[in-house]
């Protein structure tokens, strides 16, 4: 099971211990505010430049082979590269330690939110914060919609999904699943030719 990707592009990699993998990815997790791009810069600095545990090609492969998977891009790349570094154990430790700072902060915020949200002084601040969330999320919605609704077919899927929610009361996960299956029937051929043309 522990079979790293072949590495024809460089010398034998430095083999890191599980502890070292944990510390490196925990430090990356502490500053993981900039999305996948920043993460890739950090990975290259820590695991290619400072210690030759990976090659640039392996990092590129990680991004390529995880971009079609469901889930957040950063943890997917971390899980992939952790496996390359040290198999299942490396992947598990890398992923856990990368996510740990965020998990701790979020859990702390939940505890604080429950405790403090009823304080008279903080309630107006939270109202203002939530109003700002509406503005920010609207922008994200617009940007995502521009990429996802590209033609009459995808617009029809959108309308059908909304109709299924309001008129038929179909559960949300089922709507997404059904839309995905419809996508498999409608788009597989054209996407397969795109991949073939790109060579």
């Amino acid at each position: 099971m522990n079979t790293p990707t072949e590495r024809p592009d460089g010398p034998a990699p430095l083999r890191l211990g599980i502890g070292a993998i944990g510390v490196i990815f925990f430090r990356m997790g502490l500053v993981a505010f900039g999305g996948l791009l920043l993460l890739l810069v950090l990975i290259e600095r820590e695991l290619v430049d400072r210690r030759p545990a990976l090659t640039k090609r392996q990092i590129t492969e990680a991004v390529t082979y995880t971009r079609l998977l469901p889930g957040s891009g950063g943890p997917l790349v971390v899980s992939y590269l952790g496996y390359v570094l040290r198999g299942v154990g490396g992947s598990g430790v890398a992923t856990l330690m990368y996510l740990l700072p965020g998990i701790i902060v979020m859990t702390g915020l939940a505890v604080g939110f429950v405790a403090l949200s009823t304080l008279p002084l903080l309630a107006p601040a939270i109202e203002g914060l939530l109003a700002a969330v509406v503005g920010i999320q609207s922008v994200y919605l617009y940007r995502f919609a521009r990429k996802a609704i590209v033609d009459a077919v995808t617009a029809t899927i959108l309308v059908a999904g909304l109709g299924a929610t309001f008129l038929l009361g179909v559960s949300a996960p089922l709507i997404v699943l059904l839309a995905g299956v419809v996508g498999v029937f409608l788009f597989t051929k054209s996407l397969g030719s795109e991949v073939a043309d790109a060579g």
């Binding site: 079609l68 469901p70 919605l141 995502f144 919609a145 990429k147 996802a148 609704i149 995808t154 617009a155 899927i157 959108l158 999904g161 909304l162 929610t165 709507i175 997404v176 699943l177 059904l178 839309a179 995905g180 299956v181 419809v182 996508g183 498999v184 409608l186 788009f187 597989t188 996407l191």
Partner: peptide
């Protein structure tokens, strides 16, 4: 293709 189909539903 699954992702392309699911995208519009997710927008909704």
């Amino acid at each position: 293709a699954f992702g392309k189909g699911a995208g519009p539903a997710i927008v909704g």
